[in-house]
Design a protein around this nucleic acid. Structure first.
Lengths: 188, 188
DNA sequence: AGTGTATGAATGAAAG
DNA sequence: CTTTCATTCATACACT
């Protein structure tokens, strides 16, 4: 596609030191562990806490940061999804019927999003938002992601008790303010 | 922290060929203004009215809609928070705990900007529906988001030179909102 | 050398 | 507000 002239625009005040632009790449052990988590264990939705845990664990195999783990999972998920999507588009040509059913991707692309900004009216003391997908809930919280064998150095990690605290958020309000003035304008 | 080695060049032109580009991206002036609001002024929780105001102001620098502004603030807040969460157990060297006391949202960085030199003072007659978050509502109501000289409407300023530089642009025309039910008069 | 592919990183948009 | 999805940019590396 048209590769527009990438150039560094002004940065409002937060510019990284030029030159230290090393992009992380997983070391073989790191990659192996990550893939093991993703494919073997079906572990695809790490919480921030689990990201830290994983990252900490992987640190022994090379330099790594939280955001690397985060992006790694994000990208892997996105790309698998993307592959499936374009696979559906592939003209198979034959009478072969690839029935995928309806992918769980049926997002109604409703344009009138609920803009609930501002307007705090009433407040439900919501609670844990720990629900992962409608699928496997891995027992997080205190279950070690890495069963100690071989490459485990953390005997136990977070025996921490998040219970009770967390953040003071968790309140969806949905006042249906609906700034529906959004015409198509986009995506048309 | 955000290393933006990449940034798509603005469309400020605006090219916007039909079809291919459907995702909004802030033009450099827009980005600068948004960041200025967020970081400099500590302005992080715009009300719908303010979103409209900001959006209207930014329209001079390229196509933009309310929801873009809304999402921009949402994302920035979310990602900053996420970053804090992911790094909140960085080795601080001790168990020193900085108690933040109340659920700090120090958006009260109101610096008493009163650069509203001799202008309209009659807008915003709503009075008391400014209640936002039950507690720390900013005393805005009619705050001058843009000190009315910052960016001229003509939009012919340099994006890389600002702050202290004497730019010849004195047109102050906008800031008229508050009751006009705008349609999306997006410039083409 | 150029070109294509895999993948890290960034971010707008949206769901819940 | 939190989390996830989608799209895109950028770059390392392979391939011919």
């Amino acid at each position: 596609m048209e590769q527009q002239t990438q150039q560094q625009i002004e940065d409002g005040g937060n510019n990284q030191a030029a030159g230290t632009n090393n992009r992380w790449a997983p070391t073989p052990p790191q990659l192996r562990i990550l893939k093991g988590l993703y494919y073997d264990k079906g572990f695809k939705y790490p919480t921030p806490e689990q990201i830290q845990e994983i990252c900490l664990h992987l640190k022994q195999y090379g330099q790594i940061e939280d955001k690397n783990v985060f992006f790694w999972f994000q990208n892997l998920k996105a790309r698998e999804r993307q592959k499936l999507k374009e696979f559906r588009n592939v003209p198979v040509g034959g009478s072969l019927d690839l029935n995928f059913g309806s992918t769980s991707n049926d997002r109604s692309t409703d344009r009138s999003i609920d803009l609930n900004f501002g307007s705090r009216v009433g407040y439900g003391a919501e609670g844990s938002i720990m629900e992962q997908r409608g699928e496997y809930h891995q027992e997080i919280e205190t279950l070690p992601l890495f069963p100690m064998h071989g490459e485990d150095i953390l005997g136990n990690m977070k025996t921490t008790s998040e219970g009770g605290g967390g953040y003071g958020g968790g309140s969806h309000i949905f006042l249906e303010l609906s700034l529906n003035s959004y015409r198509d304008a986009d995506m048309a």
